[in-house]
Write a protein that binds this DNA or RNA. Structure first.
Length: 247
DNA sequence: AAGCTGAGCAACCGCCCCGGC
DNA sequence: GGCCGGGGCGGTTGCTCAGCT
């Protein structure tokens, strides 16, 4: 049973892309644009799975990609975003123009993880390693909307109280998160995801969340509170979303 | 020079979500 | 409301290459 494969695997190439395949894909997309990935390989004369074409285009061939080493600023931004968003690589990539989720994921796993470990910071929790060891069950990753709902039901059917505050009793409850100050008056209903500039994201909870203050226990605000501890440096007072703006 | 090892990264796999029917 | 197909995403694999012995 199960769903049918996305393509006829018996007649598709796998592995590294050749220059000729790249050229075919580029010229086809230039001529026709990004359309139906499933039918693209056949139309472009490629013996590749549609998914493979999409991945190749998005991660390597797209003209707006920024190749080359990550800057120190990008490093720090990735670390901050990861502490907020967890392994939401696509969301993180959305804040780094010219970078792809795959690239950031690889970079995280190869460089930043080690960098944080060298700093004595647990890359999974963004807490000091000794603290992370004693509070291994505490997560500081954001949970949005549906994911939050999924996580609130345990396997034995009992409902776990969903509040991150309950799971993270050491959170600084005095912290207030707020949208950019000049927008506070006009965007009272901005959800946390939108406040990061990730409008129209699937994780946007504008429709379900009407506040972004930590005093409320909405998933987005509680998650924001959970992220107060950047790089192990606890902060207090106002945490301003504008700090995540690209420079 | 040859073999070994680990890092880096491109690509694949499988699952999930969403929209159309 | 349920099913199905397509797209997207995160995790993992495996190839390549540089550094070391």
């Amino acid at each position: 049973m199960g769903r049918s494969p996305c393509c006829e695997k018996a007649h598709t190439n796998k592995g590294a892309w050749t220059k000729e395949e790249d050229d075919r894909l580029i010229s086809y997309i230039r001529a026709h644009g990004e359309g139906c990935w499933r039918s693209l390989p056949k139309a472009a004369g490629l013996l590749r799975c549609g998914k493979s074409c999409r991945l190749r285009w998005i991660n390597y061939l797209r003209p707006d990609l920024k190749r080359g080493n990550f800057t120190e600023e990008e490093d720090e931004l990735i670390i901050k975003l990861h502490s907020l968003l967890g392994n939401k690589w696509s969301l993180i990539a959305g804040r780094l123009p010219g970078r792809t989720d795959n690239e950031i994921k690889n970079y995280w796993n190869t460089h930043i993880r080690r960098k944080l470990l060298n700093r004595g910071i647990d890359p999974a929790t963004h807490r000091p390693l000794n603290e992370a060891a004693t509070a291994a069950t505490v997560t500081t990753n954001i949970s949005f909307g549906k994911q939050e709902q999924q996580e609130t039901s345990s396997s034995n059917g009992s409902v776990v109280k969903g509040s991150i505050l309950e799971r993270c009793p050491d959170l600084n409850l005095e912290l207030t998160i707020s949208p950019p100050r000049q927008q506070q008056q006009t965007q009272k209903n901005l959800c946390f995801v939108c406040s990061l500039g990730l409008h129209n994201s699937k994780d946007c909870s504008c429709n379900v969340s009407n506040a972004v203050t930590v005093n409320n226990t909405t998933p987005s605000s509680a998650a924001a509170a959970a992220a107060y501890d950047f790089l192990g440096m606890k902060t207090s007072g106002v945490w301003d979303c504008t700090r995540l703006e690209m420079k």
